[in-house]
């Protein structure tokens, strides 16, 4: 996808897609987890700040993500 196509797509409303990270067992975004894996976050920011939105950790891919994506490794929460 080119830069322009990506930009246009980003402005379009979202259609219902596959289950996202919020329903995935690999995804963790509770405050306690965020503060534990981001040491120092409370010194000059906060896990409760608006800028963090709903970001969380993908334990499957070891990444910090916004939780609005999906991937082939989706694992439903029990």
């Amino acid at each position: 996808m080119t830069l322009i196509e990506t930009f246009r797509a980003a402005l379009k409303p979202r259609a219902d897609g596959p289950p996202g990270c919020f329903g995935c067992a690999h995804f963790h975004n509770d405050t306690e987890t965020i503060q534990r894996v981001l040491p120092g976050i409370s010194s000059f920011s906060s896990a409760h700040a608006s800028v963090r939105a709903d970001d969380g950790l993908c334990a499957r891919h070891d990444t910090l993500i916004n939780g609005r994506g999906s991937c082939a490794d989706f694992l439903g929460r029990p």
């Binding site: 990506t6 930009f7 980003a10 993500i65």
Partner: peptide, 17 residues
């Protein structure tokens, strides 16, 4: 990246301080 979402303009509002 294997996981992640495509860019979304809603991020501008969601992350606004």
């Amino acid at each position: 990246k294997t996981a992640g979402s495509r860019p979304d303009a809603g991020e501008i509002w969601r992350r606004f301080p």
